[in-house]
């Protein structure tokens, strides 16, 4: 046997083809898959959220909101807010929730609807309001989210996102901790139509409780227009742009025939004479 030295003409051990193309194809496939799962589960959440009875919601939320449950409402401002919510609930809203108001010592002009009827109001918002009606509108707006179960939808979607992230990257990945830290934010990021519905609910509440809707838009008139991407995370950035919101509310008030009167002064800040 004669050995003839020669090199192979082609390399059969390496498949030809661009790795970049393969990468994009696979990455797009994966992203498409994730988007599909998120969309499907999101729809499932939308379907399921309004069907969760409030009793079950309370039981499910109890272990998570344990720290909120325990904190006693010592602050007179919290008691005052609580009384306002209770009044609204007793006279007009009649929602199947036991609302509890909490005050968060932060500068943000913000209020959040947490599961099981826990409304968190930020101190920044309390500093901005000047009339009781204004405050009642904000509280009724949050109650509107409960009425439409928006808070569960937001939370459900956040959970779906977390579940998908941990499925693909592992439970203790950096992506997951990033998501869980922004989950608080994402759960209150409602769609514009959800915000508008909550606004309409709040307006009806206000009219029912005070007999007029004066003061409803006062808070939004005091807020600056969100400018630039820096305010994207801001609570009101996810709400319909303020000016549009004011005009929408005024239009709705005209359509429904709500009258406008001078709002009640607020004594909440000093904590003396509350509603």
């Amino acid at each position: 046997m004669k050995y003839t030295p020669r090199l192979p003409e082609t390399n059969v051990n390496v498949t030809p083809g661009s790795p970049l193309k393969e990468f994009f194809l696979l990455a797009c496939g994966l992203l498409g898959l994730i988007a599909g799962i998120y969309l499907l589960l999101g729809l499932a959440v939308d379907w399921l959220a309004p069907r969760i009875p409030p009793g079950l919601e309370n039981r499910m939320a109890a272990p998570l909101l344990h720290s909120l449950e325990k904190t006693p409402a010592k602050d007179p401002r919290v008691r005052c807010l609580q009384r306002l919510v209770d009044e609204l609930q007793a006279h007009c809203a009649h929602l199947p929730y036991h609302f509890r108001v909490h005050l968060q010592d932060a500068d943000a002009v913000n209020a959040v609807a947490l599961p099981a009827g826990h409304i968190v109001v930020y101190r920044g918002l309390l500093d901005k309001v000047s009339s009781e009606n204004e405050l009642a509108f904000v509280l009724a707006h949050e109650m509107g989210h409960y009425a439409h179960r928006d808070h569960l939808r937001g939370l459900g979607r956040g959970l779906v996102l977390m579940a998908i992230a941990s499925l693909f990257t592992g439970a203790d990945s950096s992506l997951n901790s990033l998501l869980s830290s922004t989950l608080n934010l994402s759960e209150m990021r409602f769609s514009r139509s959800q915000e508008s519905q909550a606004d309409a609910f709040a307006l009806a509440e206000l009219n029912c409780y005070y007999g007029h809707v004066g003061g409803a838009v006062d808070l939004f008139e005091k807020l600056p227009e969100p400018a630039g991407p820096a305010s994207v995370t801001h609570y009101f950035a996810s709400h319909p742009a303020n000016r549009k919101r004011i005009s929408d509310l005024k239009k709705l008030a005209r359509e429904k025939g709500y009258s406008e009167d001078s709002p009640k002064p607020l004594n909440c800040a000093s904590g003396e004479s509350c509603p």
Partner: peptide, 28 residues
């Protein structure tokens, strides 16, 4: 890093891990 990510994606969908073929070929 790129090859590893490409292989990780292949791990999900299955098929020839082309990105590691050149690696083995070169080493051999």
């Amino acid at each position: 890093y790129f090859k590893r990510m490409l292989a990780a994606l292949r791990n999900i969908f299955g098929g020839k891990v082309k990105s590691y073929e050149t690696l083995l070929d070169r080493a051999r």
